[in-house]
């Protein structure tokens, strides 16, 4: 199966979009080779502006460009976008509801060797808490293409979480069902539902294969939109499932698991287990070694299911 990083797919789609619309302006903070906005710059240099290593200024400049009728894609690593520039995103972009797409790459621990200073495990929590902000985390290259086109078509602030490392294809190119705010049921099973986002969708699918060997037919949902979360789908799932397992490459505090728990607790109480980063910082290492050490492999999902399934 083909392996592509979602950041790579983002760059490709952005390059296609800038050629169609001269009101798309792309900003980067000296990481264009890594975030892949360089691909857009290669085709339309006059629509790409490097703002240097100054992320706070970049986000507020993005707001000014959007207030002038442009669709702005502003990229950096998740740590420096959602983290460092949090308040600029909050006050200058989200509060005035401006049309800026914060596309943050190198999210989660699979940044790898750079270590904890660069591994954003809180960005979903930060962005989800901001009013007016839409939060998306695609699973693979094809879904990233669909997600970027969807946020481009949506008029308002969005946060898109992308990864550094190559991930296997979950979808077949050109056949991704993608509606903002609507989760994709990839497999319909019973009793156990695995709800994942980002790179954990692929892991959830692998966990499902393992569970089948033990006679557990798990439902797998790709919850690509973290906010607004697909409340209807979650409530529906609780009617036919006893256990919900959320899977995310993010802290269990404030991310997908929390978003799901907020719905379950209020509307449809159901046993939930959270596979995610357990309120700790990461460290240097290969992405594979980190996923194993921090409990984010298909085997960890399988273990969580077996421990809690009735």
């Amino acid at each position: 199966m083909a392996k592509t990083a979602t950041r790579e797919a983002y760059g490709k789609t952005l390059a296609a979009l800038v050629e169609q619309d001269d009101h798309i302006i792309v900003l980067d903070a000296d990481l264009s080779g890594s975030t892949k906005t360089s691909l857009a710059r290669n085709v339309r240099p006059e629509q790409h502006f490097n703002m240097g290593i100054a992320e706070g200024n970049m986000m507020a400049v993005a707001a000014g460009l959007a207030a002038s009728g442009n669709v702005v894609f502003a990229s950096s690593f998740a740590m420096f976008a959602a983290g460092r520039a949090f308040e600029q995103i909050r006050n200058s972009i989200a509060y005035p509801r401006l049309n800026v797409k914060v596309c943050a790459t190198h999210a989660g621990i699979t940044v790898g060797e750079d270590g904890a200073s660069h591994q954003s495990v809180e960005d979903l929590a930060l962005m989800r808490a901001v009013p007016n902000m839409l939060v998306v985390c695609p699973a693979d290259a094809s879904e990233t293409d669909a997600a970027i086109r969807a946020v481009y078509a949506y008029d308002g602030p969005c946060y898109v979480r992308l990864g550094r490392s190559a991930v296997e294809d979950v979808y077949t190119e050109g056949t991704v069902p993608f509606t903002l705010g609507k989760g994709n049921v990839l497999h319909k099973g019973s009793k156990v539902a695995l709800i994942a986002c980002g790179i954990m969708v692929e892991s959830a699918l692998k966990a499902r294969e393992e569970l089948l060997k033990d006679g557990i037919d798990a439902t797998v949902v790709d919850m690509h939109t973290i906010k607004p979360i697909d409340k209807e789908l979650l409530i529906e799932l609780t009617k036919t499932h006893d256990l919900i397992v959320t899977c995310e490459e993010h802290s269990i505090i404030g991310g997908l698991g929390s978003a799901v728990a907020e719905v379950l607790a209020q509307y449809a109480p159901c046993r939930q287990v959270m596979v995610g980063i357990q309120d700790v910082f990461g460290e240097s290492g290969t992405p594979a070694a980190l996923l194993e050490k921090y409990g984010l492999t298909p085997a960890d999902i399988v273990k969580a299911v077996k421990e809690h399934v009735k």
Binding site: Q47, V61, A62, G64, N91
Partner: peptide, 17 residues
């Protein structure tokens, strides 16, 4: 500190277009 940055964005947009 944020307002001047947004003004820079607006001025940049006027230059671009």
């Amino acid at each position: 500190g944020q307002g001047i940055s947004t003004a820079v964005g607006m001025a940049l947009s006027n230059k671009i277009h």
